[in-house]
Simulated scan of single mutants.
Amino acid sequence: MNLQETEQFLTQFQQETGLSHEWYENRLTEIKNANTYIPTTEELVFGARVAWRNSNRCIGRLFWQSLQVFDERHLEMEEDIFEALLRHIDFATNDGKIRPAITVFKENEVRIWNYQLIRYAGYETEDGIVGDSSSIKFTEICQQLGWKGEGTHFDVLPLVIQINDQQPKFFDIPKSHVLEVSIRHPQIESFSELNLKWYGVPIVSNMKFSCGGIEYLAAPFNGWYMGTEIGARNFADADRYNMLPKVAELMGLDTKTNISLWKDRALVELNLAVLHSFKEDGVSIVDHHTAAQQFKLFEQQEEESKRQVTGNWTWLIPPVSPATTHIFHKPIANIIKKPNYFYQKEPF
């Protein structure tokens, strides 16, 4: 426990929720007498939502108050934690009408080794990389634990859960829990020949949740995708699925010269295909222009609440046509506030 952070958090909780100063004094006395801080579920819910509000890299913070918080700090067995993660996946997925959620597990004891709860494996083969190249190291870890994938471009990795210093355990996610979208283009019929697909819900699981001086090493959370995350990064990055050359070939573009802007044209159509496919399948997604407009509303709400808007500009600008958004032209202070979510050292 960091008493200074606990006091600061409880002050914020008291002021923003309208509680009395007497409540604050009594709560602080209770914590000092116990020499430990165990947030109530109400405090945890508030902290998780404010942590989203404070997330400088997130453009989707307009909806911070809608975050559903699942308090699973009582769970101590890997099997029970796995079941809680499946419940999170199902709640968030919601037949495609995605709901923002976070599940918080016991502080300093539980770790989830996955980068995201749902993520594709990556394999190094004699014929090159199969699947997601960013997952190669973790895929090898899963194989060492006994997991066997099918060797396709889109094998869903198992969930790897560790309690304290015990040997981690892996659990396969039943396919019925994983919503995936096949990617096709509204005009280019041959696009479907690329056989691309992506999972519907991005549930980040490798970050720690810091709240009131307490750190929760396992607190997976999700919103919904902004299209460019899939179309301009996961599919397009040269060190990921590297699909731009194949899309350009489908379009008949001249890839021998940069002046044809073949990368730009292929990138736009790839992003259009992602948005079209998600929308047609009824799976929540937002385009980067709408997301920027939503962020502007968030800025206005924060200013009305007399809170400084903070952000990491390099993350807030979208990777496609950033200059068409107001964020590109506006300086923003990258000040870190707590509660918040932070990267932590990989456990493997």
Rank of each mutant, 00 (worst) to 15 (best):
F13Y: 15
Y123R: 05
K337E: 10
N108W: 01
V283H: 05
K137I: 11
A219D: 06
A291M: 05
E25K: 14
E140W: 04
L194R: 05
L28A: 00
A333I: 11
N26M: 12
E249T: 13
F105A: 08
V156F: 07
A236M: 02
T41L: 01
V181T: 12
M1Q: 01
F209R: 10
E140F: 02
N206P: 01
E126M: 10
V283I: 14
T228I: 00
M226S: 03
L145P: 09
M226I: 14
F235M: 07
E302T: 07
G122L: 05
H177C: 11
S260R: 05
E107V: 03
A34S: 13
H153K: 12
K175E: 14
N222R: 08
E78M: 06
N258I: 07
G47V: 00
D155G: 05
G18W: 01
K330S: 12
F328D: 02
K337G: 00
V286T: 15
D287K: 06
T314I: 08
G200Y: 00
Q68V: 12
V50I: 15
T103E: 02
A101S: 13
N33V: 13
N242F: 14
F171N: 01
Q14I: 00
F9R: 01
L244K: 08
T40S: 15
N340V: 00
Q167L: 12
Q143R: 13
D239A: 07
L261G: 13
Q8M: 11
K208N: 10
D172F: 06
N334M: 01
K306F: 11
A219W: 04
A266R: 04
H21F: 08
W315R: 13
D165C: 09
E22N: 12
V181H: 01
V204C: 05
T310G: 11
A232P: 02
